[in-house]
């Protein structure tokens, strides 16, 4: 009996020796095991995956953990997040999280009620609108005035979110200047970027939603090419775009892009005083039950990542704009942002 007890003691001791490094590791990292970041997009070729990969790599190096980014899409992502409150599963999404809810898309709940808002880390300033190069409309003013004067303008968008918000703003602008004429702007509901481009080539759309990343080369095609397009508007704040890489995208420099930015080259009024702008921002979503300790740990870790300054370079190289806010700041910021968009969406619903 004594022998057995002795063996047990030895084994216990051996066990604690083995476990010792794990305990010190756990002391500063409250998340044990691997971390999985699910993202709200199903595509690995899109900006959400790209931004998430960049930040995940930097974070993994900082906290010395395995982090894997999984492009599961918002619905499956929400389910995965719901199930694991320990911090082993996190989510990254962008403004679509609340815009989907505002536009009453299926599957979108109010993110401020359902989740904790985590830190924001990057902005994609590329969201914009384009016209064919041979279009009768050369700029945003002409489009808005034409719609105000009874011309039907068809805008190709993907309904229910980031792609629609700019269209909503245009409609709102027409309503402000020419009350009752806003229905002359008609949404052409399409899907992916290729569908939107195709709608333009087919002559089904006068204006399409697009992005600097996806459409820049099309703007440099000669005017006689049926694929040629021009930017008329980038929804990002000009102050945001000013922080972009000076080389811009492709052969189009930042300064050239700035002439299409909200508030500088293009004015789309939101109300009597303010211009409408929209920055597509990426941020973390956490499980509601995740402990404040883990939240603080990740806040600090990310703050340190940004303090090191290397991740900013990587982000800028891919035409993202670094944009770090702690969870608490992000929560406040996105709530205010949501409220301002809710107003214009409501004002257009009769």
């Amino acid at each position: 009996m004594k022998n057995i007890m002795h063996t047990a003691k030895v084994m216990l001791l051996a066990g604690s020796v083995v476990a010792a490094p794990a305990i010190t590791f756990a002391a500063d990292n409250p998340i044990r095991g691997n971390i999985r970041i699910v993202i709200g997009s199903k595509s690995t070729g899109g900006d959400t995956y790209q931004a998430s990969s960049i930040i995940a790599e930097a974070l993994a190096a900082k906290i010395d953990a395995n982090i894997k980014v999984d492009a599961v899409g918002f619905s499956a992502g929400y389910q995965a997040l719901e199930r694991v409150p320990s911090g082993n599963t996190l989510m990254i999404f962008h403004d679509q999280a609340y815009l989907g809810h505002l536009y009453k898309q299926k599957g979108y709940e109010d993110p401020f009620k359902q989740w904790q808002i985590g830190p924001s880390f990057a902005t994609n300033p590329g969201n914009g609108y384009l016209v064919p190069k041979n279009s009768p409309y050369k700029n945003m003013d002409e489009i808005l005035n034409a719609a105000g004067n009874g011309q039907t303008i068809r805008v190709a968008i993907q309904p229910g979110g980031v792609s629609e918000i700019g269209y909503t703003a245009m409609k709102n602008a027409v309503r402000l200047a020419y009350p009752g004429q806003e229905d002359n702007l008609v949404a052409l509901n399409t899907g992916s970027q290729s569908d939107k481009n195709q709608a333009m080539f087919d002559g089904l759309a006068d204006v399409i939603n697009g992005s600097v990343q996806a459409n820049e080369q099309y703007t440099r095609l000669p005017a006689d090419d049926q694929k040629a397009m021009n930017f008329v508007w980038l929804t990002a704040k000009s102050s945001t775009l000013q922080n972009a890489n000076p080389e811009g995208m492709g052969q189009t420099s930042r300064d050239e892009l700035l002439q299409y930015a909200s508030g500088l080259g293009v004015r789309v009024p939101m109300d009597a005083e303010n211009d409408f702008t929209f920055d597509k921002e990426f941020f973390f979503l956490y499980n509601k039950r995740m402990s404040p300790e883990v939240v603080a740990f990740l806040d600090n870790a990310l703050a340190e990542v940004f303090a090191d300054g290397k991740v900013q370079e990587t982000l800028k190289k891919s035409f993202f704009i670094p944009n770090f806010r702690t969870s608490a700041e992000a929560q406040k910021h996105f709530k205010a942002k949501r409220d301002s968009y809710a107003k214009i969406i409501e004002s257009l619903q009769k």
């Binding site: 690995t44 070729g45 790209q50 990343q213 996806a214 820049e216 099309y218 440099r220 891919s318």
Partner: peptide, 13 residues
């Protein structure tokens, strides 16, 4: 994704 991760843009040009 491989192109975008390398900062290379795909398009008509």
């Amino acid at each position: 994704g491989a192109f975008t991760l390398q900062g290379l843009q795909v398009g008509p040009l």
